[in-house]
């Protein structure tokens, strides 16, 4: 019960959430085979996350989301991304794309170390939580040519 209340509070107040340890993961090849949460993600929630500007995906990428008016073109279009990459590859690209391309401009969405001058509201927190990453991975996997 206490754990549920705690989760609820963290979800309702993301900016005051206490920094939490990240789930551990292991990289095999250029991917992460296992879900960060141990559970499959929810593609419907993932779609909503990609469409939400605060997740930041859509600022740089375009995606097949006709209702989102202003999409970026700094990074590859996400249409067909599920055909180009496997689920483990998509997961590592979200978690820490710098692991296989050190000069990428893609932020590491699940990393808190090795960063400089992080603003107070974001210190010690990854850009996205493990569950959000799994949801987005599940959605991206559905974007097939």
């Amino acid at each position: 019960m206490a754990a549920i209340a705690c989760c609820f509070l963290a979800a309702a107040l993301p900016h005051v959430a206490v920094a939490q340890a990240l789930a551990s993961y292991s990289i095999a090849g250029d991917g992460i085979a296992e879900s960060l949460t141990g559970q499959p993600g929810d593609a419907v929630r993932g779609r909503a996350l990609v469409a939400d500007r605060s997740s930041t995906c859509i600022l740089c990428h375009a995606a097949p989301l006709p209702e989102v008016r202003f999409q970026g073109d700094l990074a590859p279009n996400l249409a067909g991304v599920g055909s180009r990459w496997s689920v483990p590859q998509l997961r590592l690209r979200l978690v820490d794309a710098s692991k296989f391309k050190s000069d990428t401009i893609m932020p590491s969405y699940y990393r808190v170390d090795g960063l400089t001058r992080v603003g107070r509201n974001w210190q010690g927190k990854p850009i996205l939580g493990a569950e959000q990453i799994e949801d987005i991975v599940a959605y991206l996997a559905t974007l097939r040519d």
Binding site: P107, L115, T116, V118, G119, W122, K125, I127
Partner: peptide, 9 residues
């Protein structure tokens, strides 16, 4: 030239 912030740009 220095990367900075949570988005590391």
């Amino acid at each position: 030239m220095q990367r900075q912030g949570q988005l590391n740009l």
